[in-house]
Design a protein around this nucleic acid. Sequence first.
DNA 1: TAAATATATAATAATTCACTTATATATTCA
DNA 2: TGAATATATAAGTGAATTATTATATATTTA
Lengths: 114, 114
Amino acid sequence: MNVSNVELDKVATILKLLGDKTRLTMVKLLDTNDCCVCEFVEIFKTSQPAISQHVRKLKDVGIVREARKGQWVFYSLNKQSDYYPIIQTLLHHLPSQEYKLKELEVQGLRISCE
Amino acid sequence: MNVSNVELDKVATILKLLGDKTRLTMVKLLDTNDCCVCEFVEIFKTSQPAISQHVRKLKDVGIVREARKGQWVFYSLNKQSDYYPIIQTLLHHLPSQEYKLKELEVQGLRISCE
DNA sequence: TAAATATATAATAATTCACTTATATATTCA
DNA sequence: TGAATATATAAGTGAATTATTATATATTTA
């Protein structure tokens, strides 16, 4: 009784990617907000190249998309991905991470899309 | 709007474990059947120690349980685990792997619980 | 156009992972 | 009890992973 017909191998690949605290938090945030690299750098207190490498992995399997907006590159969840249904049900089980964005806002570090 | 209140870090750990083709298939099978190590050895065409190490990892985080039945050790999904709700929704998205057990049966390699 | 800002890529080092081989432990059965 | 069967553990190895530092590329702005 398989709801979707995505291959098990490919799901394993997606789960491996999401099996990382940083990337899982990213995806949880991206489900409700677009974010740019510099915001992630602030949120995760890690280097900019580390963040770039994480988002690239998510982009390579098609679960996030990038869009340049001026000097910034914004990332968003790709809701057209074959894996979005699985990811969405997964994210439902996770506590909201919105407070991380709230903290950025307080510090004046939130980048607006517009 | 978090359905469960399991911590994100811990979910990441679970997803990393399930982000392996062998373990993900195991868990999918264990959702509907108890299996012993020697069956997994046949199914995955890998060494007995490799299988033992996989099931131990699943046991260590509490998502499977073991029960000795004579000379065999049977593994089952622990439906009492805090992570079972997440795992169950995940498994709904995977194609059935029952055919692997059917193949064993045909070869007379299926071990009965009784 | 030059400086500042944001991001990506490359090279590399430390860690983790999944297998292998060898061996130990537990159970059954002749 | 001793041989056979099933499983677990330990040690070692090669590959994959994640971070870091250094540098390249792209965009904005003075």
